[in-house]
């Protein structure tokens, strides 16, 4: 028996909007730790890892570890039917091939339940070791989204370079080139507006921009985003989900053959 009650149901709606374009089908894993997902995009270049910790749910019952295969496009369609202020409860019986989403309005005057068929999905988990990163950049998520959108109108790839001067996003295309430098800026009114750069050594990596634009669909989940970079390792783009967990995107770099 599985029963997860999330008072801030809009979080789950935002999570689905953030991942549904990157991954079609995925297994949601439920355990005592929380509700999680790890899935790669179809080209095996990008990976999404989600964790919503059990403590973040108002009610969390998961009698045994369970993996539920879902089509994320269909799940997003169902969650779109929940109001932004609704409480969302996920329910599944042991051995069942369906999951039920229950939406309750805050005043309890409207209660809806939607039942979705589960799927058998061959899950392909990757072991991602803890790594020391050469540079970690934290910046406003809206600023990062703006940069990715602007650069993708010029070129297809972005070079992210971190030096003691700041973090530089560069692209080139048929019409020209673009460079955007963000300097460390911690003297802002609100901490979430700061750009903070922790650099152990300079790093420069090249990535396909279209994936970054997909990752920025997670912007509504967090005011800030963290980019963790190391030479010749996938970048980690992390959006913290307040008091609940995170959504992390991993993207393999392009490197010299």
């Amino acid at each position: 028996m599985l029963e997860l009650r999330l008072v801030q149901g809009s979080l789950l709606k935002k999570v689905l909007e953030a991942v549904k374009d990157l991954v079609n089908d995925a297994n949601f894993d439920c355990s005592a730790t929380g509700f999680s997902l790890q899935a790669m995009d179809s080209s095996h270049v990008a990976l999404v890892a989600l964790l919503l910790r059990s403590e973040g749910f108002e009610h969390y019952r998961c009698d045994r570890n369970i993996s539920m295969g879902m089509n994320l496009g269909n799940m997003a369609k169902m969650l779109k039917c929940a109001g932004n202020d609704d409480i969302i409860t996920l329910k599944a019986d042991d051995g069942s091939d369906v999951v039920t989403f229950m939406f309750e309005s805050p005043t309890q005057d409207k209660i809806a339940d939607f039942e979705m068929k589960l799927m058998d999905i061959d899950s392909e988990h990757l072991g991602i070791p803890e790594a020391e990163y050469h540079a970690i950049v934290r910046m406003p998520s809206s600023e990062f989204a703006r940069i990715c959108k602007d650069l993708s109108s010029i070129g297809d790839t972005v070079v992210i370079s971190v030096t003691k001067e700041g973090v530089k996003f560069s692209t080139r295309g048929d019409i020209g080139t673009a460079n955007i430098v963000c300097r460390q800026n911690t003297t802002v009114d609100k901490p979430e507006e700061a750009t903070v750069i922790e650099m152990n050594e300079p790093v420069s990596l090249t990535f396909a921009l279209r994936y970054f634009n997909s990752f920025t669909k997670a912007t509504p989940l967090s005011n800030t985003v963290t980019l963790s970079l190391s030479s010749e390792l996938p970048v980690v783009v992390e959006y913290k989900i307040a008091e609940m967990g995170y959504i992390r995107f991993y993207l393999a770099p392009k490197i010299e053959d």
Partner: peptide
């Protein structure tokens, strides 16, 4: 030129 690496070039399948 640069070639696109895959995640399996860096991380192992469990």
């Amino acid at each position: 030129g640069k070639i696109q690496k895959l995640l399996s070039d860096f991380y192992c399948h469990l």
